[in-house]
Design a protein around this nucleic acid. Structure first.
Lengths: 144, 144
DNA sequence: TATATTTCGGATAAATAAGTCTGTTATGTT
DNA sequence: AACATAACAGACTTATTTATCCGAAATATA
């Protein structure tokens, strides 16, 4: 469903939020090790997230990545769109160029229902909200 | 959502059914051109589908691919599992090794709902059924 | 039996995704 | 000012997916 890069992005942001809510900035090394991702690849992804303003970053000693209220409304959908593009949300699932309500492919109407559910999944809770659930112990990020 | 190969596989089988329901066997060339797919790649995919008994094939002159009652219960899910594996249906969507109801990742419960809808999409109608809808003009396969 | 046709099987090539490396820039500390 | 730390930027490598190619096997027809 998601690319590897998107999975790492999601886990990274949630992890950053859990730390930012306790006022801790975190570096690439800590993030990568906590989400079980390769360090260099994680760094690349974090740069993209930072450039898109989905997270904040500061260089230099005591620097690192963080999230604050300016990032509080970022959703999973925002992240997926940035990393994977929007093929999950729009366009014909069979790749037909003119698929539409009036010109539906064999899967069209079923795909509409699936996408509705996907949209709910990816927009109903912010990444901050997901991090709060992790902090409360309702869900888990690293399950070694 | 689906790999390119899986999309071609689905379109191929539906096309083959539309022709088999009129008692026509079809060759790779005809299939590929009708679904807008590269010929050689389509051939590879058709071989896999044939080996899995999702379609029938006969070699030689007047040969080609076909579907009959022995293939009537093949679903989209069968095809996706064969071509893409089952990552769409099972396993943690964030890649966590021990994600479960009791040990849920941040997306777990939402993913369950999405997968329920995906399962309905991929199992409620057989590929034969989808082909019948194309024949009836309710849906379309090639929209140039 | 020879030939044409068509699927089958495996090797190869091209494109994309995943992951690494190395040097640069910013910034806090001494 | 010099140094250490950490993000940034871009080139590079590796793996996987997508796609092609070519010869072998099967089979209908002449």
């Amino acid at each position: 469903m998601f690319s590897q890069a998107a999975k790492y992005a999601i886990k990274s942001i949630i992890y950053i939020w859990t730390q930012s809510l306790e006022d801790r900035k975190v570096g690439v090394k800590e993030i990568a090790s906590n989400i079980g991702a390769p360090e260099a690849f994680t760094a690349k992804i974090l740069q993209n997230l930072s450039k898109a303003n989905f997270i904040g970053s500061v260089k230099g000693p005591n620097g690192g990545f963080y999230s604050d209220e300016s990032h509080a409304k970022v959703t999973l959908k925002d992240v997926i769109k940035l990393i994977d593009g929007d093929h999950l949300f729009s366009g014909c699932s069979l790749g037909l160029p003119k698929c539409s309500e009036k010109n539906p492919c064999p899967l069209h109407f079923e795909v509409v229902k699936v996408r509705k559910e996907i949209d709910i999944m990816l927009t109903s809770k912010s990444l901050k909200h997901l991090a709060v659930e992790v902090i409360k112990g309702l869900t888990q990020l690293n399950q070694i």
